[in-house]
Simulated scan of single mutants.
Amino acid sequence: MEQLLILCVDDEREVLDSVLNDIAPLSPPFTIDGAESVAEARQVIKDFEAQGGKLALILADHIMPDELGIDFLIDLNHASTSESAKKILLTGQAGLHDTIEAINRGGLNYYLAKPWSEEQLLNIIKEKLTDFVIEYCDNPMPFAQVLDGERIFSHMNQHRLDLGN
């Protein structure tokens, strides 16, 4: 089974812990990790990729002391190893210009304003990860139990039908 990473980046430890707690039901099969800075997030991604894993989804705050979350998402969107990762901006401070920039240049898949509800966050992440495993995993079945199993089964069934023709 493919090793896939969900990475959350927020410089406020309390917020980061809350997000990690909210998405804990996705582990396993996903590896979930957190970083308090963009520099730390880059290292987590580098280490995970060195072990043969792949970044599947990143959830980043916008306003951080060392680098803006949007700039980080744009960088990830232009790197061959992370351009396919689903990107979610979770913030209460991004203005319209920043958000448009993230969508146009950063491959932003979703914008979620703070405060969020646990159910809303988990549903959005499940939807984006289901998209990811259907599009990029040779065998998305191991992820069906924690994601949208109906969509994954439908995709697998259609794939079998397509191969039969």
Rank of each mutant, 00 (worst) to 15 (best):
G95D: 15
K86S: 10
A94K: 02
L26I: 12
D47Y: 04
L20W: 03
H78C: 07
E49M: 07
D22A: 15
I45D: 00
D33M: 15
P142E: 09
S82A: 11
I45C: 02
H155V: 04
G149F: 05
I100C: 05
A85Y: 03
N77P: 06
H155T: 03
L129E: 04
P142H: 08
I32C: 06
I124W: 04
F132M: 09
I74Y: 01
Q93E: 13
A85V: 02
S154E: 15
P29T: 10
L68F: 04
L26S: 07
N109D: 15
A24Y: 07
I124K: 12
L108S: 02
M141R: 13
I32P: 03
L96W: 10
G92S: 03
D17I: 01
A94P: 02
E135H: 07
G149H: 03
M64A: 08
D138K: 12
Q120C: 05
F153H: 10
L147A: 02
H78I: 05
H62V: 11
W116D: 03
V19E: 05
T81E: 14
D138L: 10
N21H: 12
F132Y: 15
C137A: 14
I23M: 07
A50I: 08
M156L: 13
A60V: 10
A144N: 04
F143C: 10
K126M: 07
L55F: 04
F30L: 12
E119W: 07
I70T: 15
A35S: 15
E150P: 00
I88F: 06
D75S: 13
F153I: 08
C137E: 09
H78E: 15
E83A: 08
D61G: 00
L20S: 08
D98I: 04
E83I: 07
A24M: 11
N21C: 11
